[in-house]
Design a protein around this nucleic acid. Sequence first.
DNA 1: ACCAATCTGCTTTTT
DNA 2: GCAGATTGGT
Length: 737
Amino acid sequence: MSFDNLNDKQQEAVRQLDGPLLILAGAGSGKTSTMTHRIAHMIEEGIPAWNILAVTFTNKAAAEMRERVESLIGDTQDMWILTFHAMCLRMLHIYADRIGYDSNFVIYDTSDQKTLVKNIEKEQGISDREFKPQYILSVISRCKEKEMGPEEYRRSALEGPREKAVYAVYKEYESRLRENNAMDFDDLLLNCLRLLESETDVLEKYQNRFRFIMVDEYQDTNHIQYRLISLLAAKHHNLCVVGDDDQCIYQWRGADISNILDFEKDFPDAKVIKLEQNYRSVGNILAAAHSVIRHNTSRKQKELWTTREDGEKINYYRADNDREEADYVARQIGYMNRSGRSLNDFAILYRTNAQSRLFEEALSRHGIPYQVLSGMRYYDRKEIKDIMAYMRLIVNPADDLSLTRVINEPKRGVGPKSLDKLAAFARVRGQSIFEALIDPDGEMLDTLPGRSYDKVKEMVTVMKECREQRSDMSVSDIYDALLVRTGYLKSLEDEKSVEAESRIENLMEFKTVIAEYEKSAEDPTVEEFMAQLTLAAEVDNMDDSQTQVTMMTMHSAKGLEFPVVFIPGLEDGLFPGSRAFDDDDQMEEERRLCYVGMTRAKELLFLTSAEVRTRYGRTDYTRESQFLREVDKKLLTGSAVYQRRGQRSSLGVSSGSRDGFAKEPAYKPFDALKYAKQQTRKAAAGGDTDLNQGDRVKHGKFGEGLVISVTDSIVTVAFDTAGIKKLAKGIAPLKKL
DNA sequence: ACCAATCTGCTTTTT
DNA sequence: GCAGATTGGT
């Protein structure tokens, strides 16, 4: 294989396969290309694919790496290319019993954790106002990152009321996770570490297998991840880590920057290769980013360089207010789009997700299509979480948290009081609530009052059936069955409200997600589907197939690049956030974030701020960001293509000529919901949508049948052999005969 | 047990 | 400015 398209340093990194290697890869220095070629080179050298492990930060990065390696050498089936969490999940799934878990364990996401902590606080008479669940969880997470259990915490912590409360909750939290056969995000890593530490045969197996290990974004690994990798690499020492200390932006989540700074100490024979040539950005952008990052004191000295032209200067615009700021951005995008730039070229990268709304509104006003990649909002919807809880229970009946969530959703007349009774009853029997409910002896069901009995029994029967037949059913089948037969969909339909409509909408859209999973997975199972969903990052959902502007946080944008980048909200208190002003470390992290944001841009970079901004209902005057002040003045200009007159920035940047809204051509406003619907319909091309009562239809699984009734979203069909089924219109594989 | 009306506290950032 | 929680009435 020839590496002609790589520079000397990159080639050196590619050829250096044996022993520890640290690649300090600056932003845009061809990191991914180097890593993929390095893997390809291993294969070329005769190293079997199954000896290779590559760990990334997001699923998107993993998928991209796999794709690119595949394009170089073909099949990558036997290679592990995945995220830390996915790697741990994979190992734990096989060896769960070794650490006292059932392999059907579920993963609790942040909101599950919060609910659990709240429940515990209630039970223990601890006020969730005084000790906020979020706070307690952050302490617990920090403990877990240090491998510190509840008892050790008590011994090491102070003895105030706060510490007492944290201890009490932590202890109960841990035992409840065990009882529910559930793990949180930290547990995935921690339990995997425990597994490898205590089970020498398992450790040896993986040590022998993974003779060559690569870790991407090493600057963002935490202590547990560091330990995991050290253990796995302990035998062969063929560990290559890639990272950039200037891009460490997850310290708040426990990322330990010393992992990368001390790599040479950990591995004294380590080779270090610096990639400093930037291929991504135009000279001015690089210079501007550097003028900001050099204000950080604790960093490895390096400066990126490029052979590219200087390009345009960095554009800075100070708007009157936040709404006008958003409008300015939309105007610029509209203008550049009309002069020939694709909408895919643009990204709006902000500090906080809350900022996205104004930009959504502005882009809609201007008729510009966009996608927002914001913190899990889609899966956070109530209806999705509800149906997921149903699915979880089928796999893992020990999950009391999920049962509590859905037993009265839809209303089955089971309020908190009945639920308490059920929980107590189950406890006496030594079972989880759901286990006790599905127990053939029916004892617990019989304790229910008449009004709720029938409904709960019906639900229990359905769930039991799904559970028993789940190996013969596809994930979609299970989803359909649950949606319809638990009465969940029916109760939404009966509501006849706009909100209920949109919930149904979302539930139907979710079918596309399932269908996509089923298409991509080798052996689709409900378990795996749910795990993948909880471990998905928002960037993983990025869609490049549409022509649209992309918005996300600067955190999410790490590893991505766009020709034109807008960074709005450059104001003290917002970016950098207010907390950064009394903590130097936090200020440095914010600055690194700014660096990451700026270096996403290839050709044009726009910075904006608003003189007046409304936040949590309050409108305040702002001050231009410290980071703006740090940008080399020579690199800034205020004469954007579309500019307002008379704007004066304290930075002394000049302004151009005014242009208003009036000339905007009347684009049709972009309707996100309508768009989503279209997408769903398109993706579900398998099913006929123009069905009417009385039609004869054929279903892939149920055979032929007669349509009994049709609503906007549901088709009820009496199948000749399979009985009456309610199916999702346009999605279920129904063919008109 | 359920629903509607009022109230609170919140914004970093995410696997 | 909103979503989620709390409260009070049925």
